[in-house]
């Protein structure tokens, strides 16, 4: 069978994107972001354990506003990745496979991760405002 002549239709603006697809893409995107953060966290862990000065340096570094913004992105990443990961694992065990529950849980995962991140952002901003 000639598979080369089949039409390829991958225009992301035209194909339908149900919430399950969006959630799944975000699972990958958040995973990629977390991978990029690995060397950074390994470095911070190292210097914070090195000596007193390194610990103080790590502390000062982590309280900068730009770093807080990066950390917030990573908080969302880890929340979305963890929640959608749990959903994928349950589906592996045949839990929530039917279309209605799959759609419902995809919404729950996406909104919960975004919502909790937003709440954390507000709390963090409040703390920053209170400190200055």
């Amino acid at each position: 069978m000639n598979t080369k002549s089949r039409p390829v239709h991958l225009n992301l603006f035209v194909i339908r994107m149900p919430i399950m697809a969006i959630m799944s893409i975000l699972h990958r995107a958040s995973g990629a972001l977390l991978v990029l953060a690995i060397p950074y966290f390994a470095y911070i862990l190292g210097i914070s354990l090195e000596d007193q000065a390194g610990f103080a340096l790590a502390q000062a570094h982590l309280s900068g506003w730009f770093v807080k913004l990066v950390l917030l992105t990573l908080v969302w990443s880890v929340l979305h990745h963890l929640l959608s990961g749990i959903r994928f694992l349950l589906i592996d065990f045949d839990i929530g496979v039917d279309k209605i529950s799959a759609k419902y849980t995809a919404w729950v995962v996406t909104l919960l991760a975004a919502g909790v991140s937003l709440i954390i952002a507000v709390i963090a901003m409040d703390l920053l405002g209170g400190a200055s």
Partner: peptide
């Protein structure tokens, strides 16, 4: 990844 792992393991 291996560099990050070795660095972490070292500390």
């Amino acid at each position: 990844l291996m560099g990050s792992g070795l660095w972490t393991a070292k500390y």
